[in-house]
Design a protein around this nucleic acid. Sequence first.
DNA 1: TAATATTTTCAGAAATTTCTGAAAATTCAA
DNA 2: TTGAATTTTCAGAAATTTCTGAAAATATTA
Lengths: 207, 207
Amino acid sequence: MKLSNNSQALVLHFGEMGSRWGFNRTVGQMLALLTIHPAPLNADQLSEALHVSRGNVSMGLKELQAWRLIERHHLPGDRKEYFTPAGSIWDMARIVFEERRKRELDPTLSLLRQQLLEEPQGEHEVYTQGKMQEIYELLEQLNSFANALHDMEAERLKSLMSMGASVSKVLNFGSKKKRPSGKVSTSDSTTNSTTNSTTNSTTGSPT
Amino acid sequence: MKLSNNSQALVLHFGEMGSRWGFNRTVGQMLALLTIHPAPLNADQLSEALHVSRGNVSMGLKELQAWRLIERHHLPGDRKEYFTPAGSIWDMARIVFEERRKRELDPTLSLLRQQLLEEPQGEHEVYTQGKMQEIYELLEQLNSFANALHDMEAERLKSLMSMGASVSKVLNFGSKKKRPSGKVSTSDSTTNSTTNSTTNSTTGSPT
DNA sequence: TAATATTTTCAGAAATTTCTGAAAATTCAA
DNA sequence: TTGAATTTTCAGAAATTTCTGAAAATATTA
């Protein structure tokens, strides 16, 4: 279990980012390592590669399985349990999206729905409920959108994402807002990654 | 500064959710309170209403200003600084989205871009780089999409969100996957919030 | 200018989250 | 069954984040 410099760096990076995506450092690292590693890994290998305790790995595996992001395998002649990602990168992204939707949207929607049933008392509360209504609608829209995403399978999702820029333009006809200069293709930075991004790894401008 | 039960509950709730959205409990509460309160509030009022120290409020205000989510006001004849949300609910959502994109996507894109420049050594690394490439493309797509969102102003964004379901359908023609039953409008739960959602507060079906 | 009001800062306290490692539980083969 | 291999659990330790409150800094008025 020796990692190349790049793999090492990526795993560490995903550890840091992981926390932003809803899991802790170790879990983020584990997911990254399982994803970029060509072969299934067992708990001891993860423990050694990431320098974390065996117990921690066990808890992390449990969590990743709860998310349905990894799956167990048994290699013939080996009693240990081995793990791999449960699907493609896009599958994983969809799962994380969906899970976050559940955690970040649903509880608030539920609370607001309940509160909006009550009759406001006085103009103060009228204002407050108005705002709650606005928040509710925003979250509902996000929710619908997330649902739609979830109904698509990976390839289709990919297409929609590439559409992003063009959809924007379509909706934008007649917009009052203008970008600083009068250039024709102002949103080029968003469009140059439509279909052929598979090959050009040198195009992207470094931060 | 007495809050109604509902306001109180909402503020507390946003405190808990806030952490999922990138700020801490107090900041989440402050933002919620400023949003649903009809009048501008000063630091002392926030401190009292939320039962947190004056210093904590000061730090929270600083952070919310850094996010450009609130703005300062001065009331005539009062030396204190008062605060209100800096824009509409939708403006705020856009800002949070954009900020999260910066924090959650950009650093990883930057790292991967750099790593993909190197020549893989051996089939092991070929596999690893392949995965990195996939992740890179996924994040690039998300990024384009986020950029597109950002370029739209609030109303347009709202439209796009309502489009979610229909866009899905468009992309879905010819899909191999089928929903359990053969009903015609299977994704109705996502389509009933298209354009007139501004008025009907009772339509939403409880969880 | 001084006197007062208001805001900001930041060291340490408190709260929360994550991690360890040894013991308990489970699994598997014989 | 038994016992060795493996996994899980969980109490407390360590690390991290958040919060307090008093002192320092800044702003305002007279």
